[in-house]
Amino acid sequence: MKRGKFIVVEGMEGAGKSSAITVIEAQLKQHNIDFINTREPGGTPLAEALRDMVKSAEHEERLTQETELLLMYASRSQLLENRILPALDQGLWVIGDRHDLSSRAYQGGGRAFDDQVIQAIADVTLKGFTPDLTIYLDIDPELGLSRAQARGALDRIEQEKFDFFTRVHEKYLELVRADSRIKTVDARQEMPAVHQDIRSIIGRYLEENT
């Protein structure tokens, strides 16, 4: 059985990840490719409990930055071992709403953790595993946050100060420039244009890998 592929959609708040995933799902269905969806943090019962710890804005005690970083990777480890890898081994494709790039941007850029510290944790938890394709939806932090606020209540991370998101965005751009496997889509465009760019990326990838 041919191993499945792991496609990840990345981007800041308000970039349109959910609708991008819907576009990818439709293309895979057109090609009769079976798939599952995941999200990070989360994706398994235990990983979802860890997600609640990270995202909740109502903790009785302050969640330290170090705890946040470790919870992100603990959740990711659970998801990888219990859902992603088994699905890929069964020949299923996996569409991920965020993966390791998010921690590199949010905890590495936003929280200013050293790249080597994050890499050491990733080495232990991910063991060299990487996505087959990452689509990064690039959006200005101000525009993205305004879209996120329009959706309703913000979680603990979404309530950070604006300069936090500026650092996250800068780190995303730095990481994307350094990895040719990451394809960038301008999420400031009107939605039909964004979706067409995603279809083009997935279409090329399917031509090369099916």
Rank of each mutant, 00 (worst) to 15 (best):
V117D: 02
I118L: 14
R98C: 04
L71F: 13
E61W: 02
L85R: 15
G109S: 07
R104A: 08
S102N: 00
K127R: 14
Q30W: 09
M12S: 14
F129C: 05
R62N: 09
N82G: 00
S77M: 06
V124K: 13
G14T: 07
L70K: 11
R98Y: 06
E48Q: 09
R62L: 14
S18W: 08
T44K: 01
P86Q: 09
I84Y: 13
D114Y: 02
V117R: 06
V94M: 03
A105M: 02
I118G: 07
D52T: 11
T67M: 09
L92Q: 08
N32K: 15
G96V: 07
K55G: 02
S103Y: 05
V9S: 03
K55E: 11
E60A: 15
A87K: 04
G128R: 07
N37Y: 11
M53P: 00
Q78I: 00
A20W: 12
H99Y: 14
E25R: 15
I95A: 08
G16M: 05
A112R: 14
D123C: 01
A20N: 01
Y106S: 09
G128V: 00
D34G: 12
F35K: 03
Q30A: 14
A15C: 05
A15Q: 04
V54R: 14
L101T: 13
D115L: 11
N82E: 13
P86L: 12
Q78M: 02
T44D: 06
D100L: 11
S102H: 04
T22R: 15
Q116N: 13
A74Q: 09
L88D: 00
D52G: 11
P45A: 06
A105L: 03
G109D: 03
V23P: 02
A49P: 01
T38D: 05
D89Q: 13
I33W: 14
V54C: 11
G14R: 06
L79F: 06
I24N: 14
D115H: 12
S102L: 01
S103V: 04
E40S: 01
Y106A: 08
Q27T: 03
Y106F: 15
